[in-house]
Design a protein around this nucleic acid. Structure first.
Lengths: 335, 335
DNA sequence: CGCCCTGATCGAAACGATTTTCTGCGGTTA
DNA sequence: TAACCGCAGAAAATCGTTTCGATCAGGGCG
């Protein structure tokens, strides 16, 4: 209701002085300062963000375009972002593209208008980056791509090494004695899926058998179809282990195998990816490849800060994290 | 980079005219309009949101303070909010209080500065509402409380009938023959927990037995402790069904019972609350009390719009949705 | 006693849009 | 021919801050 002008009037000073009390109190004489602070308290004055941002040229909000909020993985990444933002006194505005390119475009347009402090994004498709994101960058808004770096990207990016993750999966399952392994995931145009698959393939030995169960999407529902497919196979054709492109798929597979009376891990072992909390909470706790989720978000935010604070000095870089394996019951040694 | 002034100069008109082209094109002569639009395109001009909002007195963003983003339930509610916002051409800014009152206070202060179009919130504690939220309301910012109405609240609120939900649970379990039922949840200071418990108690008959397993929190982890407690009971003392205050708890219970070799639902039935997607995806698909999640968010957003657009005409009201039961394997008729 | 310096405060000019008021002009109508 | 109307657009006021140069009082110094 009340603006800085009324505070100034009540305290008997100029608006400039009030502003100084708020932003650089050390410049103001003690006596004046307390008088202004009293006026602020009395009027219940609160700064107008829009006016600040207008003057400053950008807001103090980091915009985050998440690919799919219903994947708990993303929530944990956000936690890391929020932590970093908080220490820098920035706000975080989360929006959800829901894997919808048109929606993503609209959201980026919105961010173009809002002039945020910076933008974190997992783009729907790696190519889409260029046009819209390029416009943000041209406006001087720092952009960091997370969890989806096309390796040759020219901007800042944070991701995990998915080939390594796939290899860890393969090595672990082989070590457990599995020689016929299925990979359940898709679409293969998504970098992560392709690379996890590659990693797995690379870890297998001559004579091993690799079955690919291609899925249109990485959800519990498609995971169920994969599980059904496995359950329907003859004993001879059935893989003894299924490596799933993420935990949602793995949960679907687990459910369907259980429903068909197959025991996990005795009949079929299951290995997931992302290590979301629900993986540990499954009836048969899922082994999974863990990515440093919070750290991923935290690092992305820090890189954004760095770029925002030293626009000239800054050099773009790509940070790649190492995943590791979390062993649980779903790939336990049988017998 | 370029402002409305430069567009005006390039098009050879005044800034007011450019603004009219952008906001009320019907006021501008065709010829002028296309000339201005060409200038906009040529310069790649994008409106400055801060300036707009400053003039307008409020932004076009709805602020949402979620209680716990890691509960998938909330994500679905958000989907409903986003849908409503989108049709009204509003943005949604999601922030997460993580059940932390101090954090919530900071976020509300932030919103006080940003002058959002309105605020949707699930408060950490029902009393906390008054102070901070009151200040927002005093500033003319509409506030709708969702999923946590203290019934006697004076503002707008959207919630589901938790007593009814509890009763549905009780009736269903009795109908399945259960005469000794446990309620797992807490803390009982949370309205939802208390009312679900009440509803259950009210549905039971004389001679029935109700065991309360009090939990400090509604998470998978505390659910596991509840499951352990049940598994450790003697056959005679053990309830034949557990009604959990939400699905996260139910998943924890399911996991622990399974681990101890108890069969669900044959030895112990489990009934959850919220019907999150992971409930259906559990190895033993969970029966659950379903709330209309998206609709809940959608309605809350619509009420916000109504209040924002007709501040004088508006009358606060509380909308209560009816939950229903979703039957799955975890409470299936045994034998 | 005049001068300069310093610290505290003021006043005004941005920031970029929207909105309201005003102007000029061509065409109608009496 | 005079009075009037309506339209397109210009010009100016406004939103609430921040910031920067100007001002001013008082103190130390030569």
């Amino acid at each position: 209701m009340s603006s800085i002008k009324e505070v100034a009037r009540l305290a008997g000073v100029s608006v400039g002085t009030v502003s100084n009390v708020l932003n650089r109190p050390e410049l103001v004489a003690q006596e004046t300062r307390v008088r202004v602070q009293a006026a602020v308290a009395q009027l219940g004055y609160v700064r107008n963000g829009s006016a600040r941002h207008l003057r400053a040229g950008r807001s103090r909000t980091i915009g985050v375009v998440a690919l799919d909020l219903s994947n708990p993985f993303v929530i944990d990444v956000l936690r890391g972002v929020e932590a970093a933002a908080e220490t820098a006194d920035l706000n975080v505005m989360v929006v959800n593209s829901s894997k919808d390119a048109a929606r993503e475009a609209r959201l980026l347009e919105m961010f173009e208008e809002e002039r945020p402090f910076g933008v974190l994004i997992t783009p729907v498709n790696a190519e889409g980056q260029d046009r819209r994101l390029g416009r943000l960058v041209a406006r001087g808004i720092p952009v960091v791509v997370f969890d989806n770096s096309s390796r040759q990207g020219r901007g800042c990016a944070v991701a995990a090494d998915d080939v390594l993750g796939g290899r860890l999966a393969g090595l672990h399952l082989r070590e457990r004695g599995h020689r016929h392994i299925a990979f359940a995931g898709g679409p293969f145009t998504v970098r992560q899926v392709e690379e996890r698959h590659q990693g797995l393939a690379g870890a297998m030995a001559p004579g091993d058998r690799l079955t690919v169960i291609a899925l249109p999407d990485l959800t519990v529902a498609t995971g169920r179809t994969a599980g059904e497919e496995v359950a329907g196979m003859s004993r001879a054709d059935r893989p003894t282990a299924v490596f799933c492109a993420n935990d949602l798929v793995a949960l679907g597979v687990l459910q369907e195998l259980t429903r068909h009376g197959l025991r996990v891990p005795d009949d079929v072992a299951i290995l997931g990816y992302d290590d979301i909390d629900f993986a540990a909470a499954a009836a048969v706790p899922l082994s999974s490849i863990r990515q440093p989720r919070e750290q991923l978000g935290h690092t992305a935010a820090l890189m954004l800060l760095e770029e925002a604070n030293q626009p000239d000095f800054h050099e773009h870089r790509q940070v790649i994290f190492q995943p590791d394996l979390v062993e649980r019951a779903s790939t336990a040694r049988t017998r």
